[in-house]
Design a protein around this nucleic acid. Sequence first.
DNA 1: CGAGGGTTTGAAGTGCATCAAATAGTGTGG
DNA 2: CCACACTATTTGATGCACTTCAAACCCTCG
Lengths: 246, 246
Amino acid sequence: MSDADIIHNTIKRLALFASCDDRTISRFCEQSTLLSIDKGQNLFVHEEKATRFFVIVKGWVKLFRETLDGTQAIIDILPENNVFGETSIFQDDIYDYSAEAIETAQLISIPLYLLKSEIDTNSKLTTALLYEMAKTRRQQDRELEHKNIQNAPQRIGCFLLRLSPQKMGEPLKIHLPYDKNLVAARLGMQPETFSRALTKLKQETGLEIKGSTVNLDNINTLVGFSCAACSSEFPCKDLKDKKTCC
Amino acid sequence: MSDADIIHNTIKRLALFASCDDRTISRFCEQSTLLSIDKGQNLFVHEEKATRFFVIVKGWVKLFRETLDGTQAIIDILPENNVFGETSIFQDDIYDYSAEAIETAQLISIPLYLLKSEIDTNSKLTTALLYEMAKTRRQQDRELEHKNIQNAPQRIGCFLLRLSPQKMGEPLKIHLPYDKNLVAARLGMQPETFSRALTKLKQETGLEIKGSTVNLDNINTLVGFSCAACSSEFPCKDLKDKKTCC
DNA sequence: CGAGGGTTTGAAGTGCATCAAATAGTGTGG
DNA sequence: CCACACTATTTGATGCACTTCAAACCCTCG
């Protein structure tokens, strides 16, 4: 497939552009470029002037910020078909986090000015953006709640449930999407804590761990364990299509 | 002032409606009602069907959710001129939190369908909503970061800075907006922890506490203490007009 | 004055972080 | 295919921050 085809196919399928007509989508595609970025490379840095936003075609991207004393706060870790950097249009064109590829990734780079000018005139796109934003807001809401009221093993359980097809009563086989250090950081804990918490989760729910694969006979025990300390009930409606649930 | 005047004056001044013409604003006002609610009363409950959203004219409102095991997660505590409940239009008209008056409050109640239909046609309003949402998103971002990297005394310091006029080098006199138990809950800590953390803050920065009044000779020591562990620098640009800063 | 809330203080426990070291896993060149 | 180096992961020991439970104190208001 040519670059142009990849760009077009990817953009077309995004919820953000779902309501746009072909002409609009083509306009975006024409101005977009496809780029590859190596593992560990930064795409942009917090506070930097923003001119483009991105869509992940392949690979994983880490969004984070750093404090004065050098500690890193992971904001999110995104797989393919996710958009990021677009919110800088509400931020005086300043990126409000840094972005780094955690494994070699392929990205679509789209000029921000296109989105900005489109928003002024295209109410469908604006509404779509609004919906996406609302979804993100809800996710963050949960993250904050979880951080406050769930403990480490429960947060891991919740994270695993998010990765699963989420049918009650079924067995479960999950492959951790990236290395355990990153999962730990994503969940706001130390690698050591992650390791121990996973062991505890094993004891409590009967799940089994082999390397980066997690098996469980029946998802229910995990739901019972993790979702007890959460304000939304299991299938986590309204959130299930996104990476954050529970 | 008549109810209609209060409604009109309040709505007119909201950022959300700043870009709307008088006709639109009048349309909203006509369909709105003014209501009073006693301290401790619920305005609506999480998961309830949503038909109206609200603007605070006077008093304080607590937004929260409860988990199965009964613990409460405070989402926010809002003073006058804040809008809440409006995000349920992105949620199948379900409130995604409960709302309770923490002291007798006066509120404007506006039908959600008005906002919904307006969004389809009025791109100015949609954009304004988008901006408000982006601002909330940023706030939440900070909250999460703070929860991760600031300790209890620092979080209190940050909270106090948010309440102040925020000029460097000046003395400071702050009155805690609501009772200490609530401040503690808002900051995600126990009342006992809050008390102890405040004592520590007193030792570290030289501020003085008399009941619910906080005095400080020079704001700088507080900034130095609290903002060290934060990824944004003091005046907290982009955030200073909202309740969350630092 | 005395009851009852809010607030502070004390003592003990829990959860997570940190530092250090052992072990498992992975890829490399021989 | 093995040995080595290097990294990821686990385990152990200790410390700190916050929570929890309990009791004292303080303040307000009937």
